[in-house]
């Protein structure tokens, strides 16, 4: 029983963070209809910013959110404006040029990070990094629990933002039907730029929250990019609530898989679920949740 409960807790806490990673991706994919294969790499940049803040400026990771998020917002805006949007006008045989471009951007980000910080492993050791509290026999990692609640707060905020603000409504409109949105007077170009910025800022937040319990090196982006698209497909494109469900599902699946099948299958479980969902539930949980 203890094993079961502990696995459940581990899965949910991790799932909260995954959700945050997924929301950024789902917005980008929903609005622009492209996959951002540099998503994990953007998170990596956010993590390095957190590291620099902590290590050189002595800023606690939770306050570093105030630095990493705006910084990544600007980076995302720049990427969309100067590399992805111009591609819409370029004539080429393959429509996937934007996706390939994000691969190139991911490589550039990784290598620039390696250039500046070398391949060394970096970590942020706060006083609470390996502390935990117990409820009964079940252990809760302090940092992960805090991260979970901040992630949930961000998610709720995004939910409110998308539903209740004009900008949020424009983003949703663009995601649903770009042409119709254009007719309604939405500046689609501006919306895609803003969305990429917001998506980047959100994944930066996830990276920053992960920093106290995880570690960092330039190649860390790849696996998280993969997780991000698994979450997004699970949740359904452009669906915030879906991303949370997707994140939790992936977190729980990984945790239970690791406990009851084997830790070696950790990554594979996510990928297999991903393929199954693609085949049997192509629009993800969006089909069930309708949001």
């Amino acid at each position: 029983m203890e094993v079961f409960l502990q696995t459940l807790v581990a899965g949910i806490l991790k799932g909260g963070l995954y959700g945050l990673i997924g929301i950024g991706m789902t917005l980008i994919m929903g609005v622009m209809g492209i996959i951002n294969l540099a998503h994990g790499q953007l998170m990596m940049v956010g993590m390095y910013i957190t590291f620099v803040c902590f290590h050189y400026l002595g800023i606690d990771p939770y306050f570093a959110l105030l630095v990493s998020m705006p910084a990544l917002f600007l980076l995302g805006v720049a990427i969309q404006k100067y590399t992805l949007n111009p591609l819409i006008e370029v004539e080429s045989i393959l429509p996937e040029n934007q996706v390939l471009m994000t691969v190139g951007i991911g490589m550039v980000l990784t290598e620039v990070a390696r250039f500046i910080f070398s391949s060394d492993y970096k970590s942020v050791q706060t006083s609470y990094s390996s502390s935990s509290f117990f409820i009964g026999e079940i252990s809760f990692s302090l940092a992960l629990t805090i991260a979970f609640f901040i992630a949930v707060a961000f998610t709720l905020f995004m939910f409110w933002f998308l539903l209740r603000t004009d900008l949020g409504r424009s983003i949703r409109a663009t995601a649903q039907d770009k042409d119709a949105a254009l007719l309604m007077g939405v500046n689609a170009q501006r919306i895609t730029i803003l969305t990429f910025g917001i998506g980047s800022a959100l994944v930066a937040a996830a990276g920053t929250l992960l920093m106290p319990i995880y570690y960092l090196f330039p190649d860390i982006g790849g696996p998280f990019t993969r997780k991000a698209f698994v979450i997004t497909i699970l949740g359904g494109l452009g669906s915030t609530v879906g991303a949370i469900f997707g994140g939790l599902t992936l977190g729980l699946a990984e945790a239970f898989g690791a406990t009851y099948i084997g830790m070696a299958f950790d990554d594979m479980i996510g990928l297999v679920i991903f393929i199954l969902v693609l085949i049997f539930l192509p629009s993800g949980f969006k089909r069930i949740t309708k949001v």
Binding site: T83, P86, L87, V90, E91, S92, I93, N97, L100, M101, V103, G104, I105, G106, M107, V108, T110, E111, V112, R114, F115
Partner: peptide, 17 residues
């Protein structure tokens, strides 16, 4: 590898075919 990455970005932008 950085050179590779930049090559990709430039090729896609300038020589999409």
């Amino acid at each position: 590898v950085l050179g590779f990455g930049i090559l990709v970005v430039v090729v896609i932008l300038v020589l999409p075919n």
